[in-house]
Design a protein around this nucleic acid. Structure first.
Lengths: 67, 67
DNA sequence: AATTTTTGTAAACTACACTTGACATTTAAA
DNA sequence: TTTAAATGTCAAGTGTAGTTTACAAAAATT
């Protein structure tokens, strides 16, 4: 699953640590999601969505073959 | 997290088993999600979204206090 | 160039999404 | 009203999201 986190984060001038704090997760979790190591849970995806004021579908791009 | 699965399923006249097959998950998983026992993973939420041709936000309603 | 901040990554752990199998209860059909 | 289909739920297991701690590498500051 691809995502636009790095760009969105840059637009708001946030470090991975800043974003992690804002979301209430660890910095490693933000890093892992940003690098595509794993997908966020649905609740976390919603929090990210609200923080960046964009629909989930606009932040995460799911492709069917991924599973 | 609330969801409109039961209604959406009724609109398409699908049983929990039908939906499970269409999504590639077990019937118990569909039942548990529908009853709010747990949240779907983000990939599964995307599959549900595509199947019902509605954005995730229109199917699942996240409220901040949930976590 | 030296220091600080940020990012990447790893291991070991916890929590929960999802599985199979099984059975009881409710709803619909014959 | 008896049978079948659909739903609810439980237990025990697997896989992955997310944790903490820790350290190395890269990027930005001074």
């Amino acid at each position: 699953m691809k995502n636009r986190l790095k760009v969105l984060r840059a637009e708001k001038d946030l470090t991975q640590g800043d974003l992690a704090d804002a979301l209430g997760v660890s910095r490693q979790t933000v890093n892992a999601i940003e690098k595509g190591k794993f997908d966020p849970s649905l609740p976390l995806a919603f929090k990210i969505s609200r923080l960046f004021e964009q629909p989930i579908e606009n932040i995460f791009q799911f492709e069917m073959e991924e599973s």
